[in-house]
């Protein structure tokens, strides 16, 4: 099993620390969900792991080999970035077919057949210039590059942002099919959490450049509960338990409780304990507390 290991990874832009001392291990044969609010550092972390941005501190290695300026390691990574359509810089003026040709040239394990199939399935007009393509088509191009690259560690940044529901369903189907066939490692950053939650084996939650959760998705969901009832009863039931995102409506209170090993909250006539979805957990951990 291959491993990509980040040790003490930090990235500073002028005075702002975008990624703070991140320790993270990615294993092949897993799909990771990378979630966080806008500006939490998701894209920066993916850039750092794929050596598209230099580290301020720390190291990134694949099976003990550094990733920075190491072609051998870089051949095992694909970070399919969002495409720029502004037309000022970059490849906005390039035709999609030329971009795909370039990708085929660079990725040693490029699967031309799969790329052609995805181009057909997503109805990508390859003769179009990137700047003239709509958002859905651009997302489809980044997905095509990511899947057809066959890279052992593949990172997708907001891959479904511009896709309609049918295209998104198709993407998840293709992703799972590719995953089960190849056992590659995928890291998918997304804001459409609920839809992707079933696909993520592990979830990484970033807040202000720091990893605040990194564990098996189901285990995280199992140990996070909504506790609601009268304020006193909820406070009593959650005493000593890590709670987040308290919401008050009159005397009624709801909190998100995150249970550690052995902790348990008993439901009784005064408090109700309900399961949380991954999206709810994300909101509880990253959202501001709301008091009404």
């Amino acid at each position: 099993m291959s491993k990509l290991v980040c040790k003490g990874v930090s990235k500073k832009y002028k005075d702002k620390l975008a990624v703070k001392n991140v320790d993270l291990t990615l294993e092949s044969g897993k799909i990771y969900g990378l979630i966080g609010r806008n500006g939490a550092g998701k894209s920066t972390l993916l850039s750092l792991m794929s050596a598209q941005a230099p580290l301020t501190a720390g190291s990134v290695e694949i099976d003990g080999e550094p990733v920075w300026e190491n072609q051998k390691s870089l051949n095992r990574i694909c970070f399919s970035r969002e495409l720029n359509v502004s037309g000022n810089n970059g490849i906005a003026g390039m035709k999609i077919k030329d971009y795909l040709k370039m990708a085929a040239l660079y990725y040693p394990a490029w699967d031309a057949e799969l790329a052609a199939r995805l181009v057909d399935a997503f109805e990508i007009d390859i003769k179009k210039q990137i700047m003239k393509a709509n958002k859905g088509m651009l997302s489809a191009v980044t997905i095509t590059i990511a899947l057809a690259s066959k890279a052992e560690f593949t990172f997708l940044d907001e891959p479904v942002a511009g896709l309609d529901v049918i295209a998104r369903e198709y993407f998840y189907k293709e992703l799972l099919s590719e995953f089960s066939e190849s056992g590659r490692c995928f890291v998918i950053s997304t804001h459409i959490i609920e839809e992707a939650a079933n696909v993520f084996e592990d979830v990484i939650i970033l807040r202000n450049g720091e990893i605040i959760a990194n564990e098996n998705t189901q285990e995280l969901i199992d140990r996070c509960k909504y506790v609601s009832g009268l304020e006193e009863a909820v406070n009593k039931a959650t005493s000593g338990v890590e709670t987040h995102h308290a919401e008050m409506i009159g005397r009624a209170k709801t909190v998100a409780a995150i249970l550690r090993g052995g902790e348990h909250i008993e439901e009784n006539e005064d408090v109700t304990v309900k399961p949380m979805s991954l999206q709810n957990i994300f909101v509880a951990l990253c959202g501001e507390e709301v008091q009404q």
Binding site: S50, E69, L74, N89, G90, I91, M94, Y99, Y106
Partner: peptide, 13 residues
């Protein structure tokens, strides 16, 4: 501004 971001993003050193 054209080929370098493209090359580095596609995994070139």
């Amino acid at each position: 501004f054209y080929y370098i971001p493209l090359s580095v993003s596609l995994g070139s050193t």
